[in-house]
Design a protein around this nucleic acid. Structure first.
Lengths: 205, 205
DNA sequence: GTCTATAAGGTGATAGAC
DNA sequence: GTCTATCACCTTATAGAC
């Protein structure tokens, strides 16, 4: 029988606790700024025990990034070629903003990684992500060609959607420092803003 | 005579070399990911010599951030109330994109700082930056009220400009990983894209 | 002003008892 | 599976010669 992944209940529970704790700490302090002590404490385990479940600090970090990668790009996959073009893209914008609201730690984890040169996920970017974006870009180009969408560069449109939505998670302190009111009010206002914004840009004349 | 800031020629030269080296390293690896050895080597000095000019690693980092803060928000200051509203804002977008192209290290330095909670510049954000943004938001609100600009939330408009332009510096590896061609071609394409994009959003019906 | 040497403390990872 | 103890290394910062 395969002993390489025994996975008792307690192992599953601890593995999940470690990943949850690591997400919390890595997303706040980056890879180098995070210590195993911090993760261990947040997970309620001792440091050696942590390293019983993962062979190294880097292994925890990589497991996190890889495990979240799919979740992170799922909203783009859902863009439907059979839907109304403007509505499909606006819905994507709102899904992405919702991700930033509900999963700000995940957003910051990726932000930290990419700002510092994406050392661990360069292959994912140049492979699967690139292919997905190219597919959707082709779809958008087709919509624009059919006159169902304003003429627009699809790749840079997607970049603009990523940046405007993730901004509310990644630069949260700055947004709050300037706007002052409570957190979720920003997201309500951002939601209304971005919907109007993209509808105006995308609706053909 | 004041000995607190002697500033011989050699001191000025070395201080500048340190700040230049620190910008290079901090912007790539973040505060905790950077070592004094790396900065010293990049600056062509020994590590103790580094600490002869600055009392600590943190002092170098803070000096960098503070020294660049003004440069970083200057483009917004130049937005002119007497100009044509749409042109003024589009010109601001292009100035900001140009900053990202020419000063990507500065952009990433601030990105690292803010993603991790802006521990060193929270006061600058809540003070001078907030005031400047509020002033310009008032200006934009006035333009929209006069019908010279489409109705739009000024604060979120400014956030969208920051995020879409800085994206090309901060997430450069991702942009390049997806688009492939050479660096400056991205900026040319981004420039054309963002100009059309914002003109479409801002022009009143 | 600049260097070598080193102190002082933190950090990732391992050993080995239980 | 989990713990205590500890190693080996790295990193910031200082001491003191030149």
């Amino acid at each position: 029988m395969d002993m390489s992944r025994p996975k008792t209940r307690i192992q599953k529970k601890n593995t999940l606790a470690i990943l949850e704790a690591a997400l919390e700490v890595f997303s706040q302090h980056g890879f180098r700024g995070t210590t195993l002590d911090q993760i261990a404490q947040a997970a309620g385990l001792s440091k050696p025990n942590l390293l019983y479940y993962f062979p190294s600090k880097e292994a925890i970090h990589t497991a996190l990034l890889m495990g979240l990668m799919d979740t992170w790009i799922d909203p783009l996959k859902e863009m439907d070629k059979d839907g109304n073009p403007v509505d499909e893209i606006v819905a994507y914008v709102l899904r992405k903003l919702e991700m930033a609201r509900v999963y700000p730690r995940e957003s910051r984890l990726f932000a930290n990684e990419i700002v510092q040169g994406a050392p661990h996920i360069a292959d994912q970017i140049k492979g699967p992500l690139r292919n997905l974006v190219n597919d959707k870009a082709e779809l958008i180009r087709g919509w624009a060609g059919d006159g169902k969408l304003a003429e627009i560069d699809p790749h840079h449109l997607i970049f603009s959607i990523w940046s405007t939505t993730q901004h509310y998670a990644d630069f949260d302190v700055q947004v709050r420092g300037i706007l002052q009111p409570e957190r979720d009010e920003h997201f309500e206002a951002a939601s209304a803003f971005l919907e109007t914004f993209y509808r105006r840009v995308l609706t053909p004349k």
